[in-house]
């Protein structure tokens, strides 16, 4: 039992470190990338992998320490998985609308929102 507790704590610690590292790398990405559209890829890392690792760690920890199998964290995962892409989509759309500058070697023509076509 002692051994199992150590093992669970090891896994929880590893998951927490992994999640924290991913969040830091996402933040570094936000600083290092050059234009708005590329910076949007940084938060995607922290809202998927980092959050996933931390939620797994939380489920494991509380499962082992309270002994009851109930994980409300799954609802948190569900809500984040629903809301994060929508907010990213809206932010990118508004960036396109404001014609924010893009990195010079971006492939594909300069797309802008066409009010006449897009608003019906």
């Amino acid at each position: 039992m002692e051994y199992l507790g150590f093992l669970v704590e090891l896994v929880v610690a590893l998951l927490l470190v992994c999640g924290g590292l991913t969040a830091v790398v996402g933040g570094i990405g936000m600083v290092r990338f050059n234009d708005f559209y590329m910076r949007m890829h940084g938060p995607a890392m922290s809202s998927t992998m980092a959050l996933g690792c931390m939620i797994l760690a939380s489920i494991l920890f509380f499962w082992f320490h309270t002994g009851t199998l109930r994980f409300p964290e799954l609802i948190l995962t569900l809500f984040v998985l629903i809301s994060a892409p929508v907010s990213a989509h809206l932010l990118t759309m508004s960036a396109l609308h404001l014609k924010l500058p893009r990195q010079s070697n971006t492939q594909g023509g300069p797309f802008e929102l066409n009010e006449k076509i897009d608003q019906d």
């Binding site: 996402g26 559209y37 949007m40 890829h41 940084g42 995607a44 890392m45 998927t48 992998m49 998985l81 629903i82 994060a84 892409p85 929508v86 990213a88 989509h89 990118t92 759309m93 396109l96 797309f111 929102l113 076509i117 897009d118 019906d120």
Partner: peptide
Amino acid sequence: LTSTISLSPGTLSAHLRPHDNTLLIH
């Protein structure tokens, strides 16, 4: 589909264009 594309880092769905049924991906 757009949520899946946005969730995986590296691709981002930018704009859904209903007039010709295409999706703009960054």
